[in-house]
Design a protein around this nucleic acid. Structure first.
Lengths: 136, 136
DNA sequence: TATTACCCTATAAAGCTCATAGGGTATGTA
DNA sequence: TACATACCCTATGAGCTTTATAGGGTAATA
């Protein structure tokens, strides 16, 4: 199940994507509009910035803005930043790979192969869908 | 990410599926063979029994056994019993449906539509795959 | 009838999620 | 320069879930 963090993040991103211009918007503005706890949203936007999905400007008139146009922001990127791996097992993750501690042989592991299928299919959908698709 | 509970459950089920006969196997036997904490496995097998995936016999010579042959036990069933909903959002779940509390209109919600796609694809794979496929 | 092994409840450590608080720091404007 | 704005960072804690253990009750079988 998607975490609240991810849902909040998607809300904030679609809010920004719907704007006509790409001027910075303050945390408070987004938090009020989307009913998100201010401090929680602050942490989320910060993380999106550190992962180059958002940019920010400090000082008066500052805030957050999209680094790329909505049609180039893939849902897979957003998922990875906010929710973490798309794979259901660490040994199946492309970006967060880890060996399963209790797995004897990954090559012959049937669960591994099954979860690779699931991952590939999910990934194909999330790669194909962008922020732009969410706002029309 | 799949929980340890689900991984243990799958291990136990494949252990049973690999047997030549379908005689009951005690918790201890499975726990030792698959390196699973005894009491934890006990709870898992009990849950699988309550959901008609396993049967059990008490007393001497008792234990757990598969209720159906391996080729008819779908991975989707196992997932639902041990891990819970396959959907990434409650509003997209077929068997565990719930309205998203912060969603204004499900009909027009783009995230909802996206996650339905993901669910359908994942489901297709997990329905198609059975215990039998895991052991060859 | 004794033993086996399932069955049930309670408990708790550990970890994660969600949320809040308080203050530091960079930036733009007057 | 001084000030206000708004990002930035660290710490803290409640609440929940996961993982695991313990102890005993109960049904079934040899």
């Amino acid at each position: 199940m998607l975490s609240r963090k991810t849902k909040y993040g998607i809300k904030a991103l679609t809010y920004l994507a719907r704007l006509d211009n790409n001027e910075p918007v303050s945390i408070s503005t987004i938090a009020d509009a989307e009913q998100i706890p201010h401090k929680f949203l602050e942490a989320i936007l910060l993380e999106l910035r550190k992962n180059s999905i958002l940019g920010s400007r400090k000082g008066k008139g500052g805030g957050y803005y999209l680094m790329q146009s909505p049609e180039t922001v893939r849902m897979s990127s957003i998922h990875r930043v906010l929710e973490g791996p798309i794979a259901m097992l660490p040994c199946v993750s492309l970006n967060f790979y880890e060996k399963c501690e209790d797995c004897i042989d990954e090559e012959t592991c049937a669960v591994n192969k099954l979860m690779i299928q699931v991952r590939d299919n999910t990934l194909a959908i999330l790669e194909n869908q962008t922020l732009k698709d969410l706002i029309k």
